[in-house]
Design a protein around this nucleic acid. Sequence first.
DNA 1: CTGTTAGCGCTTTCAA
DNA 2: TTGAAAGCGCTAACAG
Lengths: 350, 350
Amino acid sequence: MKKRRVKLEDIARKLNISIATVSRALDKNPRVKLATREKVLKMAQAMGYMPNQIAKSLSSGKTNIIGVIIPRYDEPFFIEACRGIDHYARSHNYKILISSSRNSFDFERENLISFERGLVDGIILCPSHDTETFAHIRSIIDKEIPVVLFDNIREMVKGADHVLINDDKASFSAVEFFIKNGRKNIAFIGGIKEKKVFQDRYKGYLEALKKHNIPIDKEMIFHCNSIDREFEDDEISGFLKKLSKKPDAVFTCTDNYGLLAMKTLIKMGYKIPEDIAIIGFGDLGLGDVFVPSLSCVAQPSFEMGKKAAELLIDQLNKSEEETLPKKVIKLKTHLVHRDSTRFKKVNFHI
Amino acid sequence: MKKRRVKLEDIARKLNISIATVSRALDKNPRVKLATREKVLKMAQAMGYMPNQIAKSLSSGKTNIIGVIIPRYDEPFFIEACRGIDHYARSHNYKILISSSRNSFDFERENLISFERGLVDGIILCPSHDTETFAHIRSIIDKEIPVVLFDNIREMVKGADHVLINDDKASFSAVEFFIKNGRKNIAFIGGIKEKKVFQDRYKGYLEALKKHNIPIDKEMIFHCNSIDREFEDDEISGFLKKLSKKPDAVFTCTDNYGLLAMKTLIKMGYKIPEDIAIIGFGDLGLGDVFVPSLSCVAQPSFEMGKKAAELLIDQLNKSEEETLPKKVIKLKTHLVHRDSTRFKKVNFHI
DNA sequence: CTGTTAGCGCTTTCAA
DNA sequence: TTGAAAGCGCTAACAG
């Protein structure tokens, strides 16, 4: 009862030609007489032939699938990055298979191992913040599976391409913007300390203060600990409410932290941006829906994904021997000014 | 130079046994002597053997991959649904391959066709709003590839399972909640008319008014046309500003519309919820970050995905002949009350 | 221009 | 309990 799928052999038999010819004809290989090719194409169409991707992959050694590992699904940055990857990949005839490491090193390694089983031609990975060692990645590279790393890279891995932004410089310029506009009591809200990008953004904050001779006030600095979104709100409002001194600016390491901070500050009676200016990080579409809208460091998420895919597919297209020099690409960020930094006489040309 | 991957044959040769035995040993097939199995496992380990997924799939006829087609990546509802799918799928040893139809019927069909090439064992699909006919889906089902549809289903497809919510009832109860709390001038903000779920939510709005003998005022009704997020804001604020009569409640077909409406209304000087109450639709994590926070119809997005995966995997696990009766599952929604409906003396037990 | 044939790496009868 | 061998559907080298 089960209809067997049409295969090359069926077409070949019907037309009394060899399987090889059918295969070539469908490939539009010029070594097939035009008449034959057309005959084959027509018959394939008529019989409802669909090539078997798996068989193709087995014999060609290529699956045209890119494996993508991200720390979590429900963060706009990763979604955007995946969209970027997908965008480039599809236009180059690749599909993407996405896995979440759930911010766990063990899952990340498991995912990587499952990708080693020949299902993917190459891998794009954003290390989880739980990832301290990179042997699992090197082991993949040793097996000559191309790898591109992006964002949150604690350690450069030899043999892989890297796509990054300058997290420290980005936060540096945000904080410097506050300072140049007369703000001196600048609070910092970061994320879990294990995460490289948060470390760098913190570093940029410290450097900006240092450069402008503003003493560092530990009380003004807070690192969110919760991975769970539910508790972030409590953590941040707890921090802000406990401050003995009133800050006149806040830099937060994510847009979400920025929004949560705004929410608490408004409830506390602060006027934004007159009493307090805020800059978040990311620019993933929420900042401008809020009233007031949130200024931020815009991160080129989509572009990062796209670039990662481009580098990977470049590697994939190189022949065995011709090993490409591995690259580190740093993409540009910029400040986006909205209500939360729109005070009078702002010098926007920083 | 290229290190060839270890395969069964390599292990077999090293141990002087047959490939079949190695295969069985690795499968933990009881028909292999324990000693042999252990020998094989140890050797496989030592040689760094990794099974080839593609070869496995070709010979077994199963890829353990589920194809997922959603209208777009950057909508929290679909992300959540995908998370739900992924959650269930992974715990049942399936991976998921996600494609976006970009809300285009043509892309949807193309994606479907590419899934017909044997890469996936089954398909979970949310029809794009551009999708008016379902022949492309039936054609997949004819090839005996299991299909589950979820959300935005304009037409039930025979041979597929369906996962839905009661969009009309959900919006009905939201609007009725307004009415029971004394609101009479209830505005409606919907989405593009082609989309089934928006049609249903509109229907529920009309029915609630009708049931309570509130005349329908066309001026109070608006359907967003833009797919592009950039223009939604203008559309919605344009609509609200032009109203000649002041509404005292707004029901919007998405949370995002609700947030945008709130933003405009606040700027127009409305007090929320005293002057105007608002209920959105979705509950995808933004509503409670806002000040004031947005009430909404909560849609079980994650659960919908999970259920869809469950139904698909059930189909996959049935043997050829034993064809499962196809199901239509409707999941429950509920009202979540936040600031935008938190007026005094509210009867929360509707 | 076309056909023959040997794989790709694994599963699974069938036989021993 | 094990082995030999026939596929799974397609590609590609080689021969003609």
